[in-house]
């Protein structure tokens, strides 16, 4: 059971209050009709499955009902940060490779 910091409620809450919604930062193409079939299929169906840092979209379902992002390590399950919609992650696979904080 994860312990997740809700960036809107401002405190850690139990996993039972949340629902995971898949990979974060999957933006819907602005002009879908201009997308090729391949581009649209990429947006619809293809997701990363990294061993290590993963940015995920979660919703605080039984709390404030806000969506937010989680940077989670898929091996240790450690949550390295949570951040609001529209914000960028501070911890990425690249930043860790460069010797950023772990």
């Amino acid at each position: 059971m994860l312990h997740i910091f809700c960036p809107y409620c401002g405190e850690h809450r139990e996993e039972a209050e949340f629902r995971p919604k898949g990979q974060a930062h999957i933006a819907r193409p602005l002009s879908p009709e201009q997308c090729s079939d391949e581009e649209w299929a990429e947006y619809l169906f293809f997701r990363d499955n990294p061993r290590g840092i993963h940015h995920e979209l979660w919703v605080h379902a039984t709390g404030c009902r806000k969506f937010f992002n989680v940077t989670r390590h898929t091996v240790s399950y450690e949550i390295l940060e949570t951040y609001k919609m529209g914000e960028k992650p501070k911890v990425t696979a690249e930043s860790l490779a460069k010797g950023g904080r772990s």
């Binding site: 919604k21 819907r28 979209l57 919703v59 379902a61 806000k66 919609m85 529209g86």
Partner: peptide, 13 residues
């Protein structure tokens, strides 16, 4: 309801 919120909060705020 969650679906509507998802689109509003993530795509069309």
């Amino acid at each position: 309801l969650e679906w509507l919120e998802l689109w509003h909060q993530t795509e069309w705020p």
